[in-house]
C-alpha cells in the first residue's frame, strides 16, 4: 500500500531467496526499494527467477479484500501471465483472484499480445537502477562508518506525526542533524527567519553523527514514506550532505527503503 502511493506499476523480482521491488516515482524524485525474504513466508518456493509485473493500485485493492486473519497465497505458474492470490483456501469463502501481469519476464522471442507491448514500453521506467548507495545502506544494527554522515533512529509513529503536522504548515522541511539535536523544521518563506517552533524531539531518538548535515526535502514524499510506519516500531533517517535521504523501515521479514532527492540550494 505504501508503495502504491509512490509508484503505480512495478516488477516484483522473485528468486529463491526473496521477493524484491524497486521503482522510482514518475518524477524521479523518490525511489522505493522493498525486500521480503523467503523465511518471512509460511512457505515459499521459487523454481525460476522471474519478474512479476504488477499494477500496485489493483494489487492493493485485491489485498484489501483480505481479513487480518486470512492466509494469503500468491502463485504464478512458469508461463502464466496472471498472479493468483488465494485467501484461506480452507475457509468456506474461497476467494481466488486472478491478476493480469503488467509484465512477465518472458524472453523477447515469445509473441507478445499488444497489451504486453504497451507494458514493455513502460519497462525503461522499471529498469533497476544500480543504487550506488545500496551497498552503503546496511540497515542492520551496525552503524555504516563511511556510508552516511548521520543516522537518526526514532519511533516511526513520531516521524509520521511530525511530517504529517509539518505538511499542514508548509511544503518543505529542513532536516538538520548535529551531535545532540535533530532539527526538523518547517521552512517559512525566505523573508522570515526559519521557524523556531520545532517539534520537540520525542524520546527514543538516537542520533549517530560523523558530520553535521542539513538538507531540505519535500514533505509530500516524506508523508508518503511514513505510510510504511505500521510495518516497524522505528524508522531510520540516513543522511549525508550530498546524497538522497534514506528513510528505512526494517521488519522481521525484510525492509522498505525510501530514497528522496533533496531540494537544491540550501
Amino acid at each position: 500500500k505504501s508503495c502504491s502511493i509512490l509508484v503505480t506499476d512495478a516488477n516484483f523480482e522473485c528468486n529463491e531467496e526473496n521477493i524484491m521491488l524497486q521503482a522510482m516515482d514518475n518524477s524521479h524524485i523518490a525511489l522505493v526499494s522493498v525486500e521480503i525474504g523467503a523465511p518471512g513466508f509460511t512457505s515459499y518456493r521459487c523454481d525460476r527467477t522471474m519478474p512479476l509485473g504488477v499494477d500496485l493500485t489493483s494489487l492493493t485493492k485485491v489485498l484489501r479484500c483480505a481479513k487480518d486473519e486470512n492466509i494469503c497465497t500468491l502463485k504464478a505458474a512458469d508461463e502464466a501471465d496472471v498472479l493468483n492470490l488465494v485467501y484461506d483456501a480452507k475457509s468456506a469463502f474461497f476467494s481466488p483472484f486472478f491478476f493480469a501481469f503488467m509484465w512477465h519476464g518472458r524472453d523477447a522471442s515469445s509473441p507478445f499480445p499488444p497489451f504486453f507491448l504497451l507494458c514493455s514500453a513502460l519497462l525503461p521506467l522499471f529498469i533497476h537502477l544500480n543504487i550506488s548507495l545500496s551497498s552503503q545502506t546496511p540497515i542492520t544494527s551496525s552503524w555504516p562508518e563511511t556510508k552516511y554522515d548521520t543516522r537518526v533512529t526514532l519511533p516511526s509513529a513520531e516521524f509520521t506525526r511530525i511530517v504529517r503536522d509539518l505538511s499542514q504548515l508548509g511544503e518543505h522541511v529542513r532536516i538538520e542533524v548535529s551531535k545532540e539535536v535533530v532539527r526538523i523544521s518547517k521552512l517559512k518563506a525566505k523573508s522570515s527567519a526559519e521557524d523556531e517552533d520545532n517539534d520537540s524531539i520525542p524520546t527514543g531518538v538516537v542520533i549517530e553523527m560523523n558530520q553535521h548535515v542539513s538538507l531540505t526535502f519535500s514533505l509530500k514524499y516524506l508523508v508518503n514514506f511514513s505510510k510504511s510506519g505500521s510495518l516497524s516500531g522505528e524508522v531510520q533517517l540516513l543522511m549525508s550532505n550530498d546524497v538522497p535521504l534514506l528513510v528505512a523501515y526494517d521488519f522481521t521479514q525484510g525492509y522498505i527503503r525510501c530514497y528522496l532527492a533533496p531540494k537544491i540550494g540550501d
Binding site: 522510482m24 518524477s27 524521479h28 524524485i29 523518490a30 525511489l31 529498469i127 533497476h128 537502477l129 544500480n130 543504487i131 550506488s132 548507495l133 519535500s218 546524497v243 538522497p244 530514497y259 532527492a261 533533496p262 531540494k263 537544491i264 540550494g265
Partner: peptide, 14 residues
C-alpha cells in the same frame, strides 16, 4: 520543479 534534484543526479543507472 526547478529547485528539486532528481534521483538520476545521484544514482548510476546501468
Amino acid at each position: 520543479n526547478s529547485n528539486q534534484f532528481q534521483l538520476d543526479h545521484f544514482f548510476s543507472s546501468p
